[in-house]
């Protein structure tokens, strides 16, 4: 299938970029926003968080932080499903996984636009 052959490097590049972003940045954010703040180990006030997230450069950073690892997920999840024996459904699985990542990208843009 010609389309699959040519689109593969594109998704792989997004996967690789997302994997790198996830590896470098996600653990700290997970620790701070998922555990430290909810558990009260530290606090980031609404005003400060808003001021931070409102900065254009930080928005750009947040966009990369959230959107790119979605493609990393889409790529790996697609192959997990194929490796679990769903090879007959390769094309629909690829469309669903990458489609979900694209939707996530749009949602990220929308949320960041509102801040």
């Amino acid at each position: 299938m010609a389309t699959r052959k040519t689109s593969e490097p594109f998704w792989w590049l997004l996967f690789a970029a997302g994997g790198m972003v996830a590896a470098l940045l996600v653990p700290v954010h997970l620790l701070v926003h998922g555990l430290a703040v909810p558990l009260g180990w530290t606090s980031i006030s609404h005003a400060r968080m808003l001021a931070l997230a409102g900065h254009p450069l930080v928005k750009l950073y947040l966009f990369a932080l959230i959107a790119l690892p979605l493609y990393h997920w889409a790529h790996r999840f697609r192959f997990i499903l194929e490796d679990l024996g769903l090879r007959g459904l390769r094309t629909p699985i690829a469309i669903l996984c990458y489609g979900a990542a694209v939707l996530g990208t749009v949602a990220t843009l929308w949320v960041l636009w509102q801040i």
């Binding site: 954010h29 997970l30 926003h33 997230a53 959230i66 979605l70 990393h72 790529h75 996530g104 949320v111």
Partner: peptide, 30 residues
């Protein structure tokens, strides 16, 4: 290793919701 991507993506979705609540004011965020 491959499954780790699922948890990372889930966290980022939760974080995105948190940012959305942030834009809705201090009450929603808290």
């Amino acid at each position: 290793r491959e499954l780790s991507s699922v948890f990372i993506a889930l966290f980022l979705v939760v974080f995105l919701v948190q940012l959305h609540r942030l834009s809705q004011g201090p009450g929603a965020y808290a």
